Amino acid sequence: MGAQEKKEEVAAPPGGKKQKTSKEVYFSVLPDRYEPLIEEVEEEREETPEERRKRKEEKKRKKKKKYKKYRKNIGKALRFSWRCLMAGLQNMASTYSTPLSAMSTVVTEVNRASGSKA
């Protein structure tokens, strides 16, 4: 099957120069009806408009599916972050809306409870 090469391995002499060596080449006889395998020609063949349309639709479908998945994940992330933001704002609003006298009693109660545990 084609030409094969075989090199003789020779150790380099101490001088550092490589010696010239000969190569053994093997030849084989090919059959009369030999047909080389050419895969590239098959790939380059013209496709029919029907095949081209199907390929484009499949590509479009995959792209659509991928974007749908991204939209779903981004929507989940936005909803979760919106909930966190709203909870934080509500907590802040409730803190500011309580009267200062009520806050001072709550703070002292918390300090007494934490002091008794220690």
Rank of each mutant, 00 (worst) to 15 (best):
E109G: 05
S94H: 15
K18P: 00
K6G: 03
L100I: 01
I74P: 00
K64N: 10
V107N: 07
L78V: 08
L30C: 05
K23G: 00
L37P: 05
I74R: 10
G2Q: 02
N91S: 12
R71Y: 12
L85T: 06
L37A: 14
A93Y: 03
S97Q: 04
G115C: 12
A77G: 08
G88R: 05
K18S: 02
G2I: 02
V107E: 09
K18N: 02
S101K: 11
G2L: 07
E57F: 09
G15T: 00
K72N: 15
K62E: 09
N73M: 10
T95N: 11
M92Q: 07
E50Q: 03
Y96I: 05
D32Y: 07
L37Q: 14
A87V: 01
I74G: 02
R83T: 02
K23V: 05
L100W: 10
P49R: 14
L89Y: 12
E24G: 01
R52I: 14
T48W: 01
F80R: 08
T105P: 01
E50T: 01
R33T: 10
R55K: 15
V29I: 09
L30G: 01
V10E: 02
E9L: 02
K65Q: 13
Q4C: 10
Q19F: 05
K64E: 12
K6W: 06
P14N: 10
G15Q: 00
E5Y: 05
R61K: 04
K62Y: 11
L37F: 12
